[in-house]
């Protein structure tokens, strides 16, 4: 009798759990060095982050957000990167086939903080917003690393259309992009 009660609550609990994971968020371990130093600064101790579904429910992301997305190269893989440019931005790339890229509608440009050691948009180009699954909002483990993850973007990686020093250059690039497209 007790056994069936336990079994029944497990069977009813699984769908509730899956729904919470799908709609609210879940905790995931960060693998690899691509987001150093924001995540995994010490390789011996992996960070666990809370991936929040709620902020990306309507695919609204801001520059500087750390997001989790399905890899465009391997749909079974989930990757964690920082948003550098949103649609309409003009981004100076690091080793992509074009030196300057205008982000198309419904796409964004994502990069790992650890430049050169990250499989990111410099490798596969702008990614569709539909691939975004969650926003990393805080580090939950280990306790010494408890913190919220803020949106921040180094000055050097600001898209060209926002960077103040290049406003003349930017208008020239914008003009060139308009002609091309």
């Amino acid at each position: 009798m007790k056994f069936t009660v336990v079994l029944k609550s497990i069977l009813l609990g699984i769908p509730v759990g899956i729904t919470v994971i799908d709609l609210v968020g879940y905790v995931a371990r960060v693998d690899g060095i691509s987001m150093q130093p924001a995540l995994n600064p010490d390789l011996d101790q992996a960070d666990y982050v809370f991936l929040n579904r709620w902020p990306v429910r309507s695919y609204q992301v801001q520059r500087g957000d750390i997001i989790a997305l399905t890899s465009p190269k391997d749909p079974t893989l989930s990757i964690i990167k920082r948003v550098v440019g949103i649609q309409g931005d003009i981004v100076e790339t690091i080793g992509y086939k074009n030196h300057i890229v205008r982000i198309p509608e419904g796409h964004c440009w994502v990069e790992g903080d650890h430049t050169g050691h990250s499989m990111d948009s410099n490798n596969f180009g702008p990614v569709s917003l539909g691939l975004i699954t969650a926003k990393a909002s805080c580090i939950v483990w280990p306790p010494s690393r408890w913190q919220f993850l803020n949106s921040s973007l180094p000055e050097s990686r600001l898209p060209l259309n926002l960077s103040p020093s290049t406003s003349v250059l930017q208008s020239a690039i914008q003009y060139a992009c308009n002609i091309i497209s």
Partner: peptide
């Protein structure tokens, strides 16, 4: 599929 340029 989701539309590549408009995920909604």
């Amino acid at each position: 599929s989701k539309c590549p340029y408009n995920p909604e």
